[in-house]
């Protein structure tokens, strides 16, 4: 899938001066297989990029194209299919269900496409060191544990691009390394790319593209 930002400018940023080389108001395109890093201080629109790409916001000027199709024209059904088959996501606010257990949260997503079996889910949880928490209600987990559950949930589907919105903000270096490894394994298996937003740099992925905003 080819993604193309054509003169895109989120309306809330209309009065903000743009730095040179900014993604906004430019004609930038990249393949979904690319590994992009969006590194910027908070409040500059990192989450906005994710929201635009994931079809959550329509308050922008210009055009955002997927394979030359204007995403503004996509129906609810089309977005649903894209979210099931092409775009995986780790939300910055995680969007887990606190009343369900960690495993149920993952299964809820997995049931849509039956991508993983329970054994594989446990393996992944093992890899991230949270296998013992799978039966606990998500609301009772620490933020770092929840982040790892959200990552596994994001991987429980086929995808061409995974959007990662500050996914490691509550993890220590050792855990970040393990999570990045798991994500890369999945990307390779799916032939997919990733788009990561981060406050600081990230040395665990071999980025092919840096986006400035």
């Amino acid at each position: 899938m080819q993604l193309n930002f054509r003169n895109v400018l989120p309306i809330p940023l209309a009065d903000t001066p743009l730095p040179p080389g900014s993604l906004w108001k430019s004609d930038t395109s990249f393949e979904s297989q690319a590994r992009c890093l969006v590194q910027a201080p908070s409040g500059t629109g990192k989450t906005t990029i994710i929201s635009l790409l994931y079809g959550l916001r329509a308050d922008y000027e210009g055009q955002l194209l997927f394979d030359n199709q204007d995403t503004r024209m996509f129906s609810v059904d089309q977005w649903t299919e894209i979210r099931k088959q092409k775009l995986a996501i780790v939300f910055q606010d995680l969007r887990l269900f606190p009343q369900l257990t960690a495993l149920e949260n993952i299964q809820l997503k997995n049931e849509l496409t039956k991508t993983l079996n329970e054994g594989r889910i446990r393996e992944m949880a093992e890899q991230l060191g949270i296998a013992h928490k799978l039966e606990a209600p998500c609301g009772k987990l620490s933020l770092g544990q929840q982040q790892r559950i959200a990552i596994i949930r994001a991987l429980a589907q086929p995808f061409e691009l995974i959007l990662l919105d500050e996914p490691f903000s509550h993890l220590d270096e050792a855990n970040i390394r393990k999570a990045a490894e798991l994500i890369m394994q999945s990307c390779t298996a799916n032939g997919a790319g990733l788009l990561l937003t981060s406050l600081g740099g990230n040395t665990h992925f071999d980025f092919t593209q840096h986006l400035t905003i």
């Binding site: 994931y54 959550l56 609810v76 649903t80 849509l112």
Partner: peptide, 14 residues
Amino acid sequence: YELQTLIRIGYNPK
């Protein structure tokens, strides 16, 4: 919150 999240993780509103 629940409905929006379900839709965001790929559940069809239909």
